[in-house]
Write a protein that binds this DNA or RNA. Structure first.
Lengths: 356, 356
DNA sequence: CTGAAAGCGCTAACAT
DNA sequence: ATGTTAGCGCTTTCAG
């Protein structure tokens, strides 16, 4: 099924058919109808390869992730693919398995396949930089979730500082003072941002809080290990840098017989599905995933439309989702049902907020 | 950077360059070296669009999923993309959001983009059938995880019957008798297969067990609701059709003050990450995800190589992963640490087993 | 072993 | 408003 077949069937030239189907130029209403009818009847589908060769666009966007098995990403991938498909683009997916070398290879391959644009969640703040910068010089590129140094490309992410501030405000309001931060010293920018935000805000809670920081990685195992490190100091709240850490901390605290939230509150970050399902449910910072995806595609479209203005770093405001793991000590004492009632609707509609 | 540039730089024709780089025909060792050097120096990358237009292959495979946010799929997507990338293919991802209509559109679009092959996890056993069958007539297509009627295409999935048999054998061995099945009556083939396997195997446990079946969908919410339906019958085991149901059941049982596994054992299916992290850890059937992905790509490669033999349905044997949620009643009484020791390595290396 | 040349299906000048 | 035609970059006959 080619344009020629449709042209033959509708008694006109390939150029006319092309114009009708692409809507490039005005075509006689009558011819247009005949062409469309023929195309329909023959089940004509344009050949994207030919179109890509001739024109300059493949209608394809590359999506490069560190780890699709990181439970925060599936929801983001879902929203991104839906948004892009709605614009008629297809998504080439690459999972680089947290390896910046593999990441560079995937980016190269995607460029060789002439993707129109790239969405990249960089694996490593430093070591992803060169490949990303090189790619950004060739096609519109938007960084998501994590950053990789200043001036590399447009970026869209949650406002990690605002999220951490929400957590600290909540803990302060519910009387927590002996707070510890259980974070990550990894090479993802989110690790540093959340840690810095904690350090900046914790002093308001308690003089020593800003210094009470334990660093590992973004994993359940580290959450467990961290509890063993800090538990003897008897914290009354553990502020975890993501939900996986919080899940691990919760597990270990339960094993040690600690009462959460009675003895100690635990908070996470991201609001992965597991955060709602853990027992007790984990108080966490919900990333505005649909808005992040919408913002990223909007940015991409601007660039694809030729906008070559200055780089933008969009930061969206998150919500605090209060669940049982941080309930005030007076009210919650292992009563699952009551605790459940406390969870859920405690959020407000996220307002996209742009920081220039 | 085109072949012409490389040809010019290495002082030979485009044809020769093409032959060197594609390794299609023997080329003089000396020329070959010069060509490769020039290509390297110029940073030449073949234009896939042109290659696709000229030849017949795009080097691209479409992957169509019902829901990337279903926690079983990310691991599968990971393995599939890695396997395909290792062969130099790229993966076009489509998430159809459990909607067979959207699924049909995505499949159409992928075919228009001339994917070399399709991997499809059908959204609906019946309503996905036509689109899948039509696609299978055009390109090699392998169904994964779920089926969509007999004779539609090659398929690769876990052996659901064997998995259910493992669960029932384990429950029988640990003295459970008043067993209920908490399943799904949805339109995914896995629902029916697991239910049938339960019905077939449960009679060995107890006369009435085969009839004790509650059906909803594959969700946490249904797991919770199911407990309210069956709890007054005082089951001593809940066999859930997947892990999400088991998570919900566990939540609700905890709220009701039931002791798991003391009063009642709970089992799941799939071994999603959450199954290991729930408290208590959920005994479940682990799907051999890497093997499923390897088998699917192997099948695809056979078809791409021209194999037009009869359709195949590969079923791989799963493992039982025993965790605390089904520990024998005598030994486990809320002791997390002991229970943890019981989890983990209780698996054997999965042996791919083909059912013709 | 190497080169010249014919297209793959489409779009965008350029003509009419 | 429509037709004719020249390629996009590549692979693959067909000659030499």
């Amino acid at each position: 099924m080619t344009l020629r077949d449709v042209a033959r069937a509708s008694g006109c030239s390939v150029a006319t058919v092309s114009r009708v189907l692409a809507g490039t130029r005005p075509v006689g209403a009558d011819t247009a109808r005949r062409v469309r009818a023929a195309a329909e009847k023959l089940g004509y589908r344009p050949n994207h390869a030919a179109r890509a060769l001739r024109g300059r666009a493949t209608g394809t966007v590359g999506l490069v992730l560190p780890q699709i098995t990181n439970p925060f990403y599936p929801a983001l991938v879902r929203e991104l693919t839906h948004a892009l498909h709605a614009e008629g683009r297809a998504v080439l997916l690459a999972d680089c398995d947290d390896d910046p070398v593999a990441e560079a290879e995937y980016i190269d391959d995607l460029l060789a396949r002439r993707v129109d644009a790239l969405l990249v969640i960089p694996a490593d703040e430093r070591r992803s930089r060169d490949a990303v910068a090189a790619a950004a010089a060739q096609v519109p590129l938007v960084l998501m979730d994590r950053d990789c140094g200043p001036g590399v490309a447009d970026s869209v992410a949650v406002d990690n500082s605002a999220g951490m501030a929400l957590v600290l405000g909540h803990l302060a309001a519910t009387g927590r003072r002996r707070v510890w931060f259980v974070g990550a010293d990894g090479t993802a920018s989110t690790a540093a941002e959340r840690r810095a935000a904690y350090a900046a805000g914790a002093a308001a809670l308690d003089e020593g809080a800003a210094g009470r920081i334990a660093l590992g990685d973004f994993s359940v195992a580290w959450g467990r290990a961290a509890v063993d490190l800090v538990w003897e100091a008897r914290p009354d709240a553990l502020v975890c840098a993501n939900d996986l850490i919080a899940v691990g901390a919760l597990q270990r605290l339960r094993e040690l017989g600690a009462d959460v939230p009675g003895d100690v509150a635990v908070t996470g970050f991201d609001d992965i599905p597991m955060a709602a399902l853990a027992a007790p449910g984990i108080t966490t910072v919900r990333q505005p995933v649909p808005e992040l995806a919408a913002e990223a595609t909007r940015l991409l479209n601007h660039r694809l439309a030729g906008d070559d203005g200055p780089q933008r770093a969009v930061r969206l405001a998150p919500d605090l989702v209060v669940r049982e793991s941080s309930a005030p000590r007076s009210t919650a004492r292992g009563d699952g049902q009551h605790a459940r009632a406390a969870s859920g609707r405690a959020t407000e509609v996220p307002v996209p907020r742009q920081v220039p």
